[in-house]
């Protein structure tokens, strides 16, 4: 496909970022920390592109008005602990809670087509106009803990016992609604009405009537979905060191994954829920050996 468009775009972006970190330490063995992060971005955009596409006889002019916000809020709390009187047992842990949002309210797309005399009229094509509203929210909550117990023996043999778990829960809700004005009466096909340069003079109460245009929902079946994932994994690992010459590491990781996605199928003017799920347990053993050559 050959296309040749001139694009004019005005974009303004505003960002707000914040970060707060606090840390407390008791001697050299115990540390607690907390991190809080906030990011927000807002983008306001207007764009007009006009030109030739070999899919059409005459030039087309597409206009889009869009406002998007993205936001992330993350809170993290954790600690590192070393217990010398328990044979240098080490415990690390962290809890993270994040929420991300994206909104795209009232995005407007429309199209004007060039006439044979060089003027432009509101397009009669199926993609002549659309208003859409989009929202997405992601939530992520996770726990992690790792425990390490080193054991040293007199004969040059050392063992490290490691274990830990991660629990992660993610949720997503996403929804887009789309609307389109279609011609249903003579005013909607009247070339004098369509030739008005301002779409606000066309898609207004005078012509949004049974004699002109009527709104239809053009939301797609894939535009709305919810998804969930819960993952629990834990592991045990043995790390053996023989005389600083050979190191053997072996372990087992166990994962339980529970996941589903819910989409919606349009039926008449209602929507029917369709759920697809995966529930799976994996056992992942691993062994490795390293020989240090002096």
């Amino acid at each position: 496909m050959t296309q040749d468009f001139d694009l004019q775009r005005t974009l303004r972006e505003v960002q707000l970022n914040g970060y707060l970190a606090l840390e407390a330490q008791y001697k050299d063995n115990h540390r607690f920390f907390t991190n809080t992060m906030f990011l927000r971005q807002a983008i306001d955009e207007a764009r007009v592109q006009q030109g030739f596409t070999d899919a059409e006889v005459n030039d087309v002019r597409r206009t889009q008005l869009k406002f998007i916000t993205n936001q992330l809020f993350t809170q993290q709390v954790g600690g590192d602990h070393l217990f010398e009187n328990l044979n240098n047992l080490k415990i690390d842990w962290v809890y993270t809670n994040s929420t991300a949002n994206r909104t795209e309210p009232n995005t407007r797309d429309y199209r004007y087509d060039e006439n044979d005399d060089g003027s432009y009229s509101f397009s009669r094509r199926a993609d002549s106009n659309q208003i859409s509203y989009g929202e997405l929210e992601d939530k992520d909550v996770s726990w992690r803990m790792d425990v390490k117990l080193p054991l040293e023996f007199d004969n040059g043999f050392g063992v490290s016992l490691n274990s830990g778990f991660i629990h992660q829960e993610k949720n997503r809700e996403s929804a887009i609604q789309r609307f389109t004005y279609i011609p249903v009466g003579p005013d909607g096909r009247d070339s004098e009405v369509l030739a008005q340069s301002s779409l606000e003079d066309i898609l207004n109460p005078t012509y949004i009537t049974p004699n002109g245009f009527q709104v239809r929902e053009s939301t797609r079946s894939t535009d709305r979905y919810n998804a969930h994932q819960e993952l629990l994994s834990y592991y045990g690992q043995l790390d053996m060191n023989f005389f600083d010459a050979v190191r053997v590491t072996g372990g087992l990781r166990w994962e339980e994954n529970d996941q589903f996605v819910e989409t919606f199928k349009a039926t008449g003017n209602s929507s029917e829920s369709v759920v697809t799920s995966v529930k799976k347990t994996d056992m992942l053993p691993a062994v490795s050996a390293t020989w240090f050559i002096n």
Binding site: R12, L16, N17, Y19, L20, A21, L22, E23, R108, S198
Partner: peptide, 22 residues
């Protein structure tokens, strides 16, 4: 629906709280 010429301000990045304590 219409795009109209209008003067806008500059893009900006606002840094909120950036604190690290110990």
């Amino acid at each position: 629906w219409d795009v109209k010429p209008k003067t806008i301000g500059a893009n900006f990045l606002l840094l909120g709280v950036m604190v690290k304590g110990s």
